[in-house]
C-alpha cells in the first residue's frame, strides 16, 4: 500500500535527521565539558585573591588566569566549529552556563587589573568569541550580563576578605563599583526571566559591601583620602 510506504519513508528520513542531531549534541557536550574543566581551573587560580596574602599577588594571579584563557580560546574554537551557521541558539543551552562563568571570570580579571567594568568587546576577546551574532559564535548579551552579576557576588565576598587581610581601601572601591553597576542594571527593562531573578539578588551583594564600608567608617578605619 503506497500510503504506508511513503509514511515509512518519511519517518525513516526524519529519524536520520534526529540521529545526526543527537550525535552533534553529544559532540557539543564533550567540547563544553573541556571548556568547563578549564573554567574551573581559572576559577581556582582566581580564588587566591581571597587568601590573606592574595591581594598582594594580583598581578601574578591575573597573569596566570590569562594564560588559561588562552586554552579556553582554543577550546571555544573547537566548539564553535561544530555549530552550523544560524543554529547558535538551537544549541545555546549547552554552553550558556559555561559562557556566563567565563564572562564572570574575565570580568573579575579586568576588575582586578584596571578597576574598570569589562566591556562586551573585551569580554568576547578574552573568551575567544565574537560580540555580535552576525560574526558567528558570540557571547549572548544575557550571558554577559549574567557574568557581571556573578562578578558582583564575588566582589562582595572580596570586600569582606580584603578587610580580613587589612586592605581597607578596597571595600570602598568595590562599593562604588557595585553602586554604579546597579545603576547600570536599573537602566535595563528586564523581562521576568532568569536574568531578572539574578539581578534581584544584586541588592544583597550591594548591601553586604555597604555594611562592610559602614563598619570601617564608624571605627575610623576608612582610609583618610576619602574624607
Amino acid at each position: 500500500m503506497d500510503v504506508s510506504d511513503t509514511l515509512t519513508a518519511t519517518f525513516t528520513e526524519l529519524q536520520g535527521y534526529l540521529q545526526a542531531e543527537q550525535q552533534l549534541r553529544e559532540d557539543i557536550r564533550f567540547a563544553v565539558r573541556d571548556i568547563e574543566q578549564t573554567t574551573r581551573e581559572i576559577q581556582k587560580v582566581l580564588q587566591a585573591i581571597h587568601q590573606p596574602q592574595g591581594l598582594t599577588k594580583i598581578a601574578l594571579v591575573c597573569e596566570n588566569s590569562r594564560k588559561l584563557f588562552k586554552d579556553v580560546q582554543d577550546q571555544i574554537k573547537i566548539l564553535s566549529d561544530k555549530i552550523p551557521a544560524n543554529q547558535y541558539y538551537k544549541y545555546h543551552d549547552h554552553w550558556k552556563f559555561a559562557i556566563q562563568r567565563l564572562a564572570f571570570l574575565a570580568a573579575l580579571v579586568i576588575f582586578l587589573e584596571t578597576e574598570q567594568l569589562i566591556d562586551r568587546q573585551t569580554a568576547a576577546d578574552i573568551i575567544g568569541v565574537k560580540v555580535s551574532k552576525e560574526d558567528g559564535f558570540h557571547v549572548d548579551l544575557d550571558d554577559y550580563l549574567m557574568g557581571l552579576l556573578q562578578l558582583a557576588s564575588e566582589l562582595s565576598r572580596l570586600a569582606v576578605n580584603a578587610v580580613i587581610a587589612g586592605d581597607y581601601a578596597r571595600p570602598l572601591q568595590i562599593s562604588s563599583f557595585l553602586g554604579e553597576l546597579e545603576s547600570g542594571f536599573r537602566l535595563l527593562n528586564l523581562k521576568n526571566d532568569a536574568l531578572r531573578k539574578r539581578f534581584d539578588a544584586l541588592k544583597y551583594d550591594v548591601k553586604k559591601v555597604e555594611e562592610v564600608v559602614y563598619d570601617l567608617s564608624i571605627r575610623g578605619l576608612k582610609p583618610s583620602t576619602e574624607t
Binding site: 574598570q116 567594568l117 566591556d119 562586551r120 562599593s175 562604588s176 563599583f177 553602586g179 554604579e180 553597576l181 546597579e182 545603576s183 547600570g184 542594571f185 536599573r186 537602566l187 535595563l188 550591594v206 555597604e210 564600608v213 576619602e226
Partner: peptide, 23 residues
C-alpha cells in the same frame, strides 16, 4: 560617595560614568 548612599532610595544616573555608558 553619592553612589554609595543614594542607591537605596533613588537611582541617580551619572551619565559620565563608563559603566552607565556601557549599559
Amino acid at each position: 560617595f553619592k553612589k554609595v548612599n543614594d542607591n537605596k532610595n533613588k537611582v541617580v544616573v551619572d551619565e559620565n560614568s563608563a559603566i552607565i555608558k556601557i549599559f
